Computed example of a mutant assay.
Amino acid sequence: MIPILDTHLHLVYPERFSYPWLAGAPALNRAWRVEDYLAEARPLGIEAALHMEVDVAEADIEAETAFVTGLEGVVGAIAACRPESPDFPAQLERLAALPGVRGLRRILHQAPDELSRTPLFAENLRRLAAHGLSFDLCVRHDQLALGRDLAARVPEVRFILDHCGAQDIVVGETSPWREDLAAIARLPNVMAKISGIIAYAGPGWTLDSIRPYVEHVIECFGWDRVVWGSDHPVVTLGGSLTDWVGATRRIIAGASADEQARLLHANARRIYRIGERPSP
């Protein structure tokens, strides 16, 4: 069984941190601890994970990042940030100094489009290059042009498109997502994360209904520019971690062992620079 490095694990510790958005997500509004995740993940071949920020209250961003990087099985973190703020340079220096920080993310799929269009936002993201940090791009399918514009303005930074760029898409309706995904894939500094699909597909998904999304992402980005993520526990909105790992392995079963390994762990180690110091 080819091992997996999960690049998109969310952990929730409500006794430690504040997550205001969870009040509107009752199915997820509870603790999600690393030991419970590992109990399911390890038998599936998931050997390690990168923690993805969980949109904690802004005051908790640095504390969340410092905490999760000390947990068993977590080999790094993508930290939250606020590139729209004039104070971002100082925030970046503090986050980059934390051991294990591999990249940053600012959730854009629930933010006004104007947030990422300002010169300040792009100027601040350029600062990531000096620290060897990537930026996870979390946009809806109807914002792919917005994401492409941002990545094009910051070519020196590596962007990872979360959730196949297909958030909120109705499974079976692939246009204009197919065309917009192909357009953003033409930027050499953009990678794609195969994650989130069954959460957004809903509980009625089938292997045949989600296969076109996974295969189109791989076709557009190639086997060297894709990584895999569980999106746990958001994945539970459409099934389970076990379901998603099983579906992924079945969809890519026809690929070579080398291609599968690149998607499931090798690319992630290179793109997120696992095992390296994050400075260039």
Rank of each mutant, 00 (worst) to 15 (best):
A59R: 11
A59V: 11
D60N: 13
I61F: 14
I61K: 14
I61D: 09
E62H: 04
A63K: 12
A63Y: 04
A63I: 06
E64G: 09
T65L: 07
A66T: 14
V68C: 10
V68L: 11
T69V: 13
G70H: 02
L71A: 14
E72L: 09
G73P: 12
V74I: 13
V74Q: 11
V75S: 06
V75R: 11
V75D: 01
G76E: 05
A77R: 10
I78D: 00
I78F: 05
I78G: 04
A79I: 03
C81I: 09
R82F: 02
R82I: 00
R82L: 08
R82Y: 03
P83Q: 09
E84I: 01
E84N: 04
S85A: 03
P86M: 00
D87I: 02
D87K: 14
D87L: 14
F88L: 01
F88D: 01
F88K: 02
P89R: 09
P89V: 07
A90Q: 14
A90Y: 00
Q91F: 00
L92S: 02
L92T: 12
E93S: 13
E93T: 13
R94T: 03
L95V: 05
L95P: 09
A96Q: 06
A96Y: 04
A96V: 09
A97S: 11
A97R: 02
P99S: 05
G100M: 11
V101N: 12
V101K: 06
R102T: 06
R102E: 05
L104Y: 05
L104C: 05
R106A: 13
R106P: 11
R106T: 11
L108P: 15
L108H: 12
L108A: 14
H109I: 01
